[in-house]
Structure formats: C-alpha cells, structure tokens
Amino acid sequence: MPANHEFTRPDGKTAPAYYVAPEPGASAPGVVVIQEWWGINDQIERVANRLAEAGYRALVPDLYRGAKALDAAEAEHKMTGLDFGDAATQDVRGAVQHLKRNGGKVATMGFCMGGVLSLLGAMHAPELDAAIAWYGLPPDEAGDPGEIKVPVQGHYGNQDQMFPPETVNDFEGKLKAANVRYELYRYDAPHAFSNEDWDYYDAEAAKLAWQRSLDFLDKHLR
C-alpha cells in the first residue's frame, strides 16, 4: 500500500507516511515505526498493523519517498544515500510531534537502519517518551547515548555480523555509565531475525522480542 498520510516536519516541509490506528483510536498512544533498509514494504506495514491491533496509532515515515529496494545491493545503496541527520531530526522527530499533537505518549520502534534512527530519535527528539531498537546501533559520531533521557529497549542477535555482540556491549556500557533507563536483550539469532520475509527469520526469538516490546510500550506509554 502506498503512503496514505502526511505530516509536517520541524522545518515546515511535509513528508509522506503509512498510518494505521485502532478503532476508535484518535487519542491512543502512538508509535513511530521506522523501516529497515528496504523501504516501506509489506513487512513493515504488517508491523504497524500489529501495533494498531494492540491499541496503538502507528506512523511509518516514508524515508525513501515512495522508493523500495528489491534486493540487498539496492537496499544498501539507498541506505548509504540517506541523510541520517535529516531523517532523525526532521522525519522521525516530525512524526513524533505529529502523533504527540493528536494524542498521548509516543515511542519509536525501528528495525536495522530504523533501529539506528530510533536511538537517534531518543537523542534528538525531546518530545519522545520511549524508544525501541531492533538490531541497530548509531555510530559514535552521531551523538552521545549518555544524553538519552527516555527509557530505551534493545533487541540484538548474538549471531549478528552487522552489529556484533561486542558493539552491543560497548553501547550498553555507555548507557549504564550515564544511568540511562534501559533494557537490552540478546538472542541466539542472526541479524533481522524478526523479518518473516527474510532468510534469517527466527520465529521463537521474534515472538519473545515482540512480547517484550509490547510490555515495554504498555509500561511507558499507557
């Protein structure tokens, strides 16, 4: 399904998004869902739909402006070409502000590239109330994790070669040193283990991580 919604960024520009809400859900808590490197595809829309079924308004900013990647090489090219600073401070923050104006508390939930942006949102979107990252870590130059003021949850695979365990441990050390409220979970699984359309899908790990995410959202948004 193409983007069916628009929101205004802090710079005044409009951005497209996929939006779904519970019925009735005008004032329900919100979750900004942030895509993997594929773009807004059927899988990320299903994530948003599941959140709506759980009682949340879900907004997925279209970071690629309608484009999708059909293979890993194209996805890497699109991700490399993305301005992460603009995406975090304008698209993600604008999506948070949009949901905040129309209801209650708001969290981000991102996957891979989106996991990076979810954590960047926690650093750069003061309106945010909580953040969840599935296998994604921001680079050191993107900001100081110790400045995060909201609760953070992370889900990482011990077989992940893109974000290996030692980088997760280093990130956790920074959160702990700064007394950031966090919970990080490790799974005996590879990268992108929750994507049911991908080669490395791990149903057991995905189910557990999803339930932990719902529990986290319920605790911090309701």
Rank of each mutant, 00 (worst) to 15 (best):
S118R: 07
V60F: 14
K68V: 14
E76S: 15
A107M: 03
R101Y: 03
A87D: 07
A88Q: 08
H77A: 15
A107N: 10
D83K: 02
Q97V: 15
L59E: 04
I132W: 08
A52N: 04
D83L: 09
G103D: 13
G85K: 02
F111I: 11
A54S: 03
L51P: 00
V116R: 15
K105V: 01
L117T: 01
P151R: 07
Q90L: 10
D83R: 11
L63N: 06
A52R: 05
K78M: 14
K100Q: 05
A95N: 03
Y135C: 07
H77V: 11
M123P: 03
V96E: 00
L59H: 02
P126W: 01
T108Q: 08
L51A: 01
T80W: 03
F111P: 08
A130V: 10
Y135V: 13
L117K: 06
Y56D: 11
L117D: 02
D91V: 08
L51E: 04
A88D: 10
G136S: 08
Q97D: 15
E76L: 14
K149Q: 13
A67F: 08
Y64M: 08
A142F: 15
A87G: 11
A122F: 01
I148D: 12
G115P: 06
A125N: 06
D71K: 06
V60P: 09
G103F: 01
K105N: 12
Q97Y: 00
